[in-house]
């Protein structure tokens, strides 16, 4: 948070070392959404991983919240060019969720309540790079920011961090999700400025 100071907000900071190319710093948290906000009651919420063999691993809210969680502070980079540094979250690492999952799949297709999808290599979800986050800034994650729980993969553009996450389907092929089908990059590395499909 120390890097956010008044006056920087909204200005292009291409020379800012913590910002990927083409990004500017913002201190608010813009809400972007491709559709209506789904309401997901906690008593029906579940997070499910389905392997390429059809094996299912599922956690209801109670089981999910009993998993070890961690606090994390990460930078967010949205493809619409805003970046927000030093955001505080609490969530369960995907390393924990994938610990007992037997798979040879190389990709994950992420599905959300409300129908949103995205895709990424499975290795981008491992080794402390991704979480299912359920708190933001010490509060329950608000629905407009993806609550009850969202994927958080901060090293990729924020559209990969699917709000209202419902589960993963592990696949041998990389299957484009919602924005990847609509013209955005299949991988989306902000440091390599992989914004659009043709980049």
């Amino acid at each position: 948070m120390a890097l956010i100071s008044r006056g920087f907000s909204g200005r292009p900071r291409s020379d800012e070392p913590d910002l990927p190319p083409g990004q500017y710093l913002t201190s608010d948290f813009p809400v972007l959404s491709a559709g209506p906000t789904p309401r997901v009651p906690l008593d029906t919420w579940a997070f499910t991983i389905v392997t390429e063999a059809g094996e299912r691993h599922s956690w209801d809210w109670k089981a999910f919240r009993q998993l070890p969680a961690e606090d994390l502070t990460v930078d967010l980079h949205c493809v619409t060019r805003w970046s927000k540094l030093g955001t505080s979250w609490r969530g369960v690492s995907l390393d924990t969720l994938l610990e007992d999952v037997e798979t040879a799949a190389e990709y994950a297709h992420v599905r959300s309540y409300g129908g949103y999808t995205t895709n990424l290599p499975l290795e981008d979800l491992l080794d402390g790079q991704a979480w299912i986050a359920f708190e933001y800034d010490g509060e329950d994650l608000a629905p407009e920011h993806g609550g009850p729980a969202r994927l958080l993969v901060p090293h990729l553009y924020l559209w990969k961090s699917a709000k209202w996450v419902q589960g993963l389907i592990l696949t041998p092929e990389d299957e484009p999700g919602f924005w990847e089908t609509a013209g955005y990059h299949i991988y989306g590395d902000p440091w390599r400025e992989q914004r659009y499909a043709g980049d």
């Binding site: 813009p30 809400v31 972007l32 959404s33 491709a34 559709g35 209506p36 949205c78 493809v79 619409t80 129908g115 559209w159 919602f178 924005w179 609509a182 013209g183 955005y184």
Partner: peptide
């Protein structure tokens, strides 16, 4: 929906894209 990385037009009947 315009507060998004692109324009998204949805059906008012079923909300599908």
């Amino acid at each position: 929906f315009t507060q998004a990385p692109g324009l998204v037009g949805r059906c008012p009947g079923c909300e599908d894209v």
